[in-house]
């Protein structure tokens, strides 16, 4: 997802007998679906787990601006240009909400940014794939935002109050993102032959990377088990992936496009589609920094940060001068 393979304590769920009274009371509140707020006591593992997840999610929103931003200057109509600008602007806003949620856990936005740039923190693997044609912008909205919605809707019920509330605001905007993407795909798939070809090619390239967004199967993961007990994570990766496939395949059919999976078949007995797993070696390669765009994406963020240093310092210096002048006048 936007947060993939987030580490928890690494020890699996702590048995109740081993919990302190404080930890037990905390787990009871989580179990009763009470919201944990910044001032409440929380286990350190819970705090660290959340910082990693929210931070990774925030970075994904920010880096996620780049593949779509790549087409803003080439959008084919004024209307499309405006829609895409509004969409990418929303993603920056999502980053802002999420950094603010992370800050309530005692970590600053600048610290998180440094962690992203140094490679200590990750962002979603999906944004390391290139957008090569205009149809890719449709595919990103349709598939990538579609997958994001799958994950984010349940996170509105996550146990940490500021994170859950950020998710509520974000989810409100995401359905517009997916709709505009599907609308582009529709125009392309039903357009000229060249447009149709672009649409099919975009689906071919984005299908498996979209399935990877949910992360590898985590039924065996000690990290996921603890995250789920704390309700930082709500569904399993496989569960969400299945839901995504079930929802997306009929949409592809409606577009007249072919999902690039020979094993894709409706399974009457399961009431779900059977489908092929993505190439998980490729996924781990991308996470290690070897995706097609990792170097460029991080390079772009690093340039923005480094080239912008004089701006941040200048504005800060001015704010200090202004405050000093105000104090002097009082």
């Amino acid at each position: 997802m936007y947060a993939q393979m987030v580490k928890s304590t690494g020890k699996g769920i702590k048995p109740r007998e081993e919990m302190s009274a404080q930890e037990r009371a905390f787990q009871d509140r989580v179990d009763a679906d009470e919201r944990i707020e910044p001032r409440d006591w929380m286990p350190d593992g819970y705090r660290q787990n959340l910082i990693r997840q929210i931070g990774q999610h925030a970075h994904s929103e920010i880096v996620g601006q780049l593949p779509e931003g790549n087409w803003i200057t080439r959008a084919p109509t004024l209307q499309r240009k405006m829609i895409l600008l509004a969409k990418v602007q929303d993603e920056a806003g999502h980053g802002l909400y999420l950094y603010a949620a992370a800050e309530t856990l005692g970590v600053s936005r600048d610290d998180l940014t440094e962690d992203l740039l140094s490679g200590r923190m990750k962002y979603s693997s999906i944004f390391n794939y290139p957008t090569l044609t205009w149809a890719d912008i449709g595919a990103v909205g349709w598939l990538v935002d579609g997958a994001a919605i799958m994950n984010q809707v349940p996170l509105q019920r996550t146990s940490y109050g500021p994170y859950a509330r950020a998710m509520v605001r974000i989810c409100k905007e995401e359905s517009f993102h997916q709709r505009q993407g599907y609308d582009i795909m529709m125009k392309m798939a039903q357009g000229t032959e060249a447009q149709h070809r672009m649409a099919q090619d975009a689906l071919n390239r984005f299908w498996y990377p979209s399935l990877m967004m949910f992360g590898p199967s985590d039924t065996e993961s000690v990290h996921s088990a603890q995250s789920m007990a704390w309700k930082i994570k709500i569904d399993t990766n496989d569960g969400l992936r299945q839901k995504f496939v079930d929802q997306t395949v009929p949409q592809a059919e409606y577009l007249g496009l072919t999902v690039p999976d020979e094993n894709l078949k409706w399974n009457e007995k399961r009431g779900h589609y059977d489908f092929s797993q993505p190439d998980w070696d490729e996924f781990f390669d991308v996470l290690r920094g070897n995706g097609p765009c990792n170097t460029d994406r991080l390079g772009a963020r690093r340039n923005a940060w480094e080239d912008g240093a004089w701006v941040r310092e200048g504005l800060l210096a001015h704010a200090r001068k202004k405050a000093a002048r105000k104090t002097a006048a009082e």
Binding site: I62, Q65, L66, G69, I72, L85, V88, Q89, A92, G93, G95, L96, Y99, R109, A300, N303, A304, W305, D307, G308, A309, V311, R312, L315
Partner: peptide
């Protein structure tokens, strides 16, 4: 878009 010195400026 995506390259500003501060997130608020990007927006």
């Amino acid at each position: 878009c995506g390259h500003s010195p501060v997130l608020e400026e990007d927006i």
